[in-house]
Simulated assay, not measured.
Amino acid sequence: MPSVETGSAGFLTASSPVRLQFAQKAFIVAAGRLLLVRKAASDPFHPGRWEVPGGRLEVEDDLDLDDHIRREVWEEVGLKVDPGPPFHLWQWFMADRSPAAREGLIRVVAAARRCHPLTFDVGFGNRDESDHLDGCAWVPLHELGAYELIPSLRPVMRAFLRLPC
């Protein structure tokens, strides 16, 4: 095994460039229900599957992590939230589809946060088409197992359901 001093590339960086991004996901709970959003048929990765609102940090614009999650929730579902502390960290890899990338990957490191809604009327007026969302539902916690989640969210959902109420 090469030493750290040799500067050898890891298995992912040896084969293709990897960009790092940070994301947050909001687990918004009200009256025993969790807000889920559905990916549209146009979503390139998980069409028709469910997840929670949130997204990737915009490095130049999101100076505060609380403001970042507030912005993502406002843009995707039109709610104002009070963000709580993170309860789970995870990562996933995805193809880098930016014009400058050839065959690169994006490594997304994400934090899940339980959020308290300050407003309750969901609206899609602020949504960007690149979010690829076409619906949402306030789902009773005991019914979450019936929803087909995006794969990377499944262990996060299990961690969420283990949290004290």
Rank of each mutant, 00 (worst) to 15 (best):
M1G: 15
P2G: 02
T6D: 04
T6W: 14
T6F: 14
T6R: 11
T6Y: 11
G7R: 11
G7Y: 14
S8P: 05
A9V: 13
G10M: 05
G10P: 09
G10K: 11
F11E: 13
F11S: 14
A14Q: 15
S16H: 05
L20W: 13
F22L: 02
A23D: 09
Q24F: 01
Q24T: 08
A26P: 01
V29A: 05
A31F: 06
A31Q: 12
A31L: 14
A31S: 15
R38Y: 08
R38N: 00
A40D: 03
A41V: 04
S42R: 02
P44I: 09
F45G: 03
P47A: 08
G48I: 01
E51G: 11
V52I: 03
L57Y: 08
E58Q: 11
E58G: 03
V59H: 02
L63P: 10
L63A: 08
D64I: 07
H68S: 12
H68T: 03
H68Y: 09
R71G: 03
R71Y: 10
V73P: 07
V73I: 14
E75Y: 08
V77L: 04
V77R: 02
L79M: 14
V81C: 07
D82S: 15
G84W: 04
G84H: 06
P86D: 01
L89V: 05
W90E: 07
W92R: 05
M94W: 11
D96Y: 03
P99F: 02
P99Y: 13
E103F: 04
L105N: 12
I106R: 09
A110G: 12
C115H: 12
P117I: 14
L118F: 06
T119D: 11
F120L: 15
D121N: 07
D121S: 11
V122T: 02
G123N: 15
G123Q: 09
F124L: 11
F124G: 05
F124I: 00
N126M: 05
D128E: 15
E129F: 12
E129H: 08
S130H: 12
H132K: 12
H132Y: 15
L133D: 07
L133N: 05
D134K: 09
G135T: 03
C136F: 13
C136Q: 05
A137W: 01
V139G: 06
P140D: 02
L149V: 00
P151Y: 10
L153C: 04
L153N: 01
V156N: 06
V156S: 00
M157R: 06
M157Q: 07
M157G: 00
R158T: 04
A159I: 01
F160K: 09
L161C: 01
L161E: 14
R162I: 09
L163Q: 09
